[in-house]
Every structure is written in C-alpha cells, then in structure tokens.
Amino acid sequence: MGQSISSPVPVFAKECTELHKKYDQCFSTWYDKEFLKGESMENPCLDQWTDYMQCVNVALIKKGIRSIDTFDKEDLPDNIGEVLKQHAASQESTSEKNA
C-alpha cells in the first residue's frame, strides 16, 4: 500500500479521538492483513472498541441523541429494493396509459 492519509478520522466527540485512533489502527491492520485474506475467525479489536464506544455513548446521551443500544434493524432501509421495483412497475403502467 502507498502512503497513508495523515489527518485523523474525525469522531463524534473530541474527547473520544484518542480512543478512536487506537481502535481504528487495530481495525485497519486486522482488516488488511487478516480479514481480507480470509485468515481471521474473530475480531481482535474488541477491547479497543469497547473503550471507544463507552466514550461515544456518553457523548451521544449528553447531546440528547439516542443511545447506541437503541439502534436496531428497524432503522435499516431493507425494503428499498422492493420500493424501487414497485415504483418502476407503476412508472411503466403510467407510461403505457399515456401511450
């Protein structure tokens, strides 16, 4: 890989920057050298992530945003494929009517 990008990735709360940096370094190394090669059965950066996430969670609550625990699958735009299909079908029927 070529040169690295020097500036750090910004995070939600400034006070969590250092913890995020530690986690991110661990993740990047693992992702490039183990995960992509199919050589990993587990994510080894859990400790770093837990420290960083505790910090972020406190900041989220302070700013009045939902705690991370409350994000769930309902937030997923899972039905987007279906919505697109339905829309395409309705467009076709409209253009047929107009024709």
Partner: peptide
C-alpha cells in the same frame, strides 16, 4: 464532520 463505528461483528 465525523464517522463513528457503532457496531462491528464477524
């Protein structure tokens, strides 16, 4: 402005 990892699972 920021990107935070909320969850990661293998």
């Amino acid at each position: 402005k920021s990107v935070d990892v909320l969850h990661r699972e293998l």
